[in-house]
């Protein structure tokens, strides 16, 4: 098993431009299996762009990205294969409004794993159970609260049995009282040992589950340290300013 020796994710000298604007500058990053990374940084620093490159929702112009040892091809031919074991959870949930929670969870396994309806339903119900929403399986997204929608989105990603989960500010579109239920779900996932990269400013969550906190600014990774270290003694000036802003607000 040559593959299992490879890190879960590896970025080598990755640079990306939006037109003339350089949003990722020579990013190097290795994420090991089972590792939990929290990615933070000021608005516009390229956090979303970075994790969207990992499942090639965005293209990169320079550098290499390897997922489970497999390199993302420049032409995007193997993007779909990679995405099938990299789950993603969005800030705006992006649930499909015309499908029930259950149907949202069943679509991709049925189309991609080609499993039968009953098996897909059982799998979906299992994951909805895991996010404590089995009772809401037949509801449409519009009938669910924000926190519930985000948990359905997490269950939907889990239904593909991903090795890696990417979260892009999963709680920042939520009303404050719903943040906890989503974070709790994420903590449970972390405890189960899945590899995750999470863009978030929830520092309590970072302290609780992160192995490493990565700080980005202007498209660069400036700091990468265990949470205790990062929060108590950030080395970089900009990280200090950033922490000052989010901890005092």
């Amino acid at each position: 098993m040559e593959q299992s020796a490879a890190p879960a994710i590896r970025l080598e000298h990755v640079s990306k431009w939006f037109g003339k604007l350089k949003v990722l500058q020579d990013v190097d990053l290795t994420v090991n299996r089972g590792e939990h990374i929290v990615l933070c940084g000021p608005s516009g620093s390229g956090k979303s762009t970075l994790i969207r490159c990992i499942n090639r929702i965005e293209e990169v112009q320079e550098g290499r990205i390897l997922v489970d040892g497999v390199e993302l091809r420049g032409d995007g031919r193997n993007a779909e294969d990679i995405r099938r074991h990299v789950g993603m959870v969005f800030q705006q949930f992006n649930l499909f409004p015309h499908m029930t929670a259950l149907e949202n969870c069943m679509l991709a396994p049925r189309r991609i794993h080609r499993i039968g309806k009953d098996e897909a339903r059982a799998r979906a119900m299992g994951h909805l159970e895991r996010v404590h929403l089995a009772d809401h399986a037949q509801k449409y997204p519009a009938q669910l609260s924000g926190g519930q929608q985000q948990r359905v989105a997490i269950a939907r990603a889990l239904c593909m049995n991903p090795d890696i989960l990417l979260f892009d500010e999963p709680t920042s579109a939520l009303d404050p009282e719903m943040v906890k239920e989503v974070l709790d779900t994420m903590v449970e996932l972390a405890d189960a040992g899945i590899t995750m990269i999470c863009v978030t400013h929830e520092m309590g969550f970072a302290r609780a589950v992160a192995h490493r906190v990565i700080f980005m600014d202007r498209g660069e990774i400036l700091e990468s340290a265990p949470p205790e270290e990062f929060f108590s003694a950030p080395r970089h000036e900009r990280a200090r300013t950033f922490l000052g802003q989010i901890l005092n607000h």
């Binding site: 499942n55 929702i57 993007a79 779909e80 294969d81 995405r83 099938r84 990299v86 789950g87 993603m88 969005f90 705006q92 992006n94 649930l95 499909f96 409004p97 015309h98 679509l107 991709a108 189309r111 991609i112 989105a153 939907r156 990603a157 593909m160």
Partner: peptide, 30 residues
């Protein structure tokens, strides 16, 4: 149809045809 819908489909690993057939079609017609 919001761009996020297509992105969510792509993030799940669905192909373009499936994305249009299962994700975009109904909300678009609606």
């Amino acid at each position: 149809v919001p761009k996020g819908q297509v992105e969510a489909g792509r993030a799940l690993g669905l192909g373009t045809a499936d994305i249009y057939r299962f994700i975009v079609f109904r909300p678009a017609i609606r």
